[in-house]
Simulated assay, not measured.
Amino acid sequence: MDSVRVRLMREDDLPSAERASAVTFFEADRGTRRVSEPEVEPRSSVASKQWIDRMRFCLGVDPAGCWVAVKTDEGADRTVGFAISQNRGGLWFLATYGVLPSHQGQGIGKRLMDAALAHADGRPGIFSSSVHPGATRRYRLAGFSLHPQMRMVGVVDRSTLPAVDGLREGRADDFEWMDGLDQDLRVAGHGPDHGYMLDTLRLVVSRDRARPGYVYIDDRGRASLLAAAERETAQRLLWEALASAQGNTLVNCITTPNEWAVDVGLAAHLDIGQEGYIAVRDMPVPAPYLASGHFL
């Protein structure tokens, strides 16, 4: 462990950190895969580029929350662990965190988490967690409540799609009220994250400002982040995302307070399963809300 240094991330660490992330999560997913589930695939080159782009954005917005654990090999630092966290107003979130399997059990994860939590400076916090026993132990010891998540997968039965009205395409001038909704649901707005997501995802919003809501939808028609003031609006937004789905789709980060999403998924004939936890500290689980994996 003495040969491993924990320090602030630099932009030139991103490729090495991405490789460490790809290996760490591939091994974790393979270790927790159920027999009935498909084989885990390595991260694609497109997904690797997307990871680097997202983490470069985080590094640019709040660099003091981005940490790496490195070993120096032949004069170059090699990433063996990473913790990328961000402060947005009064909220802290952990975008991603992990330690290479070959370096787990050596206290590196604790050092990284301690650095990221010091950056939180007492703020309420939220993140999406895997089921890795070492990681979940660390989160609980840090004072986080772990709320089991569900996911729904499958091909949408298009005969079940309802006519959805009251929605429109979102724009940058929606960000102000979206941040107000975020603050009501999860302590603080997403701030600059909305601009990043609008550049890479489709945004759909509720026309009715008395019942606001929004959903970001990726290029495969999957809901990437959804927030609403009440469940009926949330369900209409999720139906809009499912109507855009191409082939197999995924609705994830579903917590018990968000069973409205389960009702939609079951109506669309998706299959329900379990996946990890939403971890929160000093705040309730947001609802109606489906968290983003990286922007929470």
Rank of each mutant, 00 (worst) to 15 (best):
D2L: 14
S3I: 10
V4W: 08
V6Y: 13
D13Y: 15
L14W: 10
L14V: 12
P15K: 08
S21N: 13
S21A: 14
A22D: 07
A22I: 04
V23S: 08
F26G: 03
F26V: 03
G31D: 11
G31Q: 10
T32S: 04
V35A: 11
V35C: 02
E37D: 15
E37F: 01
V40W: 00
P42R: 05
R43S: 08
S44H: 05
S45T: 13
V46P: 00
V46D: 00
A47Q: 14
K49A: 14
I52G: 03
R54Q: 13
M55F: 15
F57P: 02
F57C: 05
F57D: 06
F57W: 15
C58S: 11
D62E: 12
V68W: 05
D77H: 04
R78K: 15
T79N: 03
F82L: 15
G89I: 14
G89L: 14
A95T: 15
S102V: 04
S102R: 04
H103S: 07
G107C: 09
G107Y: 14
G109A: 10
L112C: 11
A115N: 08
G122K: 06
V131P: 05
P133F: 14
A135C: 08
A135F: 09
T136K: 07
R137N: 13
R137Y: 14
R140N: 11
G143P: 05
G143V: 08
L146I: 07
M152P: 00
V153I: 14
V156W: 00
L161Q: 01
P162S: 11
D165F: 11
D165M: 09
L167K: 02
R171D: 13
A172H: 12
D174H: 05
F175A: 13
F175K: 01
M178D: 03
D179L: 07
Q183C: 12
D184G: 08
A188L: 08
G189K: 02
G191V: 12
G195S: 06
G195N: 03
Y196M: 06
L198D: 04
T200E: 01
L203I: 01
V204M: 00
V204D: 01
V205D: 00
R207W: 03
D208A: 10
A210T: 11
R211W: 04
V215T: 04
D218C: 04
D218G: 05
D219T: 05
G221L: 03
G221A: 07
A223Y: 01
S224N: 12
A227M: 12
A229Y: 12
E230V: 09
R231E: 14
R231F: 12
R231W: 09
E232M: 13
T233M: 05
T233L: 03
A234T: 04
A234F: 06
Q235C: 08
R236S: 09
L242R: 00
A243M: 02
G247D: 06
N248I: 05
N248T: 08
C253N: 14
C253P: 01
T256I: 09
P257C: 08
N258P: 07
W260V: 03
V262I: 05
A268S: 05
H269N: 13
D271M: 03
D271S: 06
I272C: 09
G276F: 07
G276N: 10
I278V: 12
V280S: 03
P284V: 11
V285F: 13
V285M: 08
P286A: 09
P286W: 11
Y289S: 05
Y289G: 02
L290Q: 01
G293D: 06
G293E: 06
L296P: 01
